[in-house]
Amino acid sequence: MTAQSGAAFGRFGLRGGSNMKAIEFCGVSFRYDEESPFAIHKLDFSVEEGEFVAVLGHNGSGKSTLARLSNGLLEADEGEIRVFGTQIARKNLYDVRKNVGVVFQNPDNQTVATIVEDDVAFGAENLGLAREEIGERIRFALQAVGMQQYRTAAVARLSGGQKQRVAIAGVLALKPRAVILDEATAMLDPRGRREIVEVVSRLNREEKITVIMITHFMEEALLADRAVVMNRGEIVMQGAPADIFERQEELITYNLAMPRIGYICNRLRAGGLPVANTLDSETLAEEIARCVS
């Protein structure tokens, strides 16, 4: 992050810092229709403002439903959902969505306009802002995702990772206090995935934007403050990512694959090399060097 873009963030006053809960689920249940099982079942879950939470789970574990409920795209059958202290109701959806932005899986299906800046402007236009303010927000949002040089480019010509960064910029233009990424990296190649993870962790670190990253790639959870594992609409594990990844057998029962580094660690220990647990390749290299010498 350059000093210049840091200034841009500061100017928009996105810094949080209070101890308010960004998102709070109290006994929430939801199902898509009467016959189907609950997608979310009696869920109690909360995210502090400024926190970076990774939500892990296999397909159908209810993690995407969680994103849609948090933004008011779905309405809970039971229980209460509060966003920055306000309970979600039909009449305040507009305010809820201003505070909680969602980035979806397929970048092609969330782009409204052909040109990058027009697409980023869409949300800000919906808020009824003045032209100058929209221009400022486009500049800020594109800078935040490192796409300022593509401002007038055609979205169709960008790579998957770049398109998804534009989608994030489109959400940032609303100046949300929390951003939910609903499997936003699922359709990207490894490079695109890395780009997105870097952008959101930077937004969280430097701007204190609350980030909820829903994913089934466990490596992506590494940068998070907290990892939450979901299964059949319930939270089954939560804690620091490194601690979660140590409980390998348990993870396998929830159909989640271990990150490769963690797997190598475990195999090395089983093979008699007493390396400490880590999920970072460089630390592992140092550990191996230590053990061997």
Partner: peptide, 26 residues
């Protein structure tokens, strides 16, 4: 399916019909 997802993405970005919007490009 694309239309459905786009609709969700537009709503998530505060689009509601009937509410007064502004234009970036005048």
């Amino acid at each position: 399916r694309k239309a459905d997802e786009l609709g969700d993405a537009m709503e998530a970005r505060c689009y509601t019909s009937g509410v007064k919007r502004t234009k970036y490009k005048k």
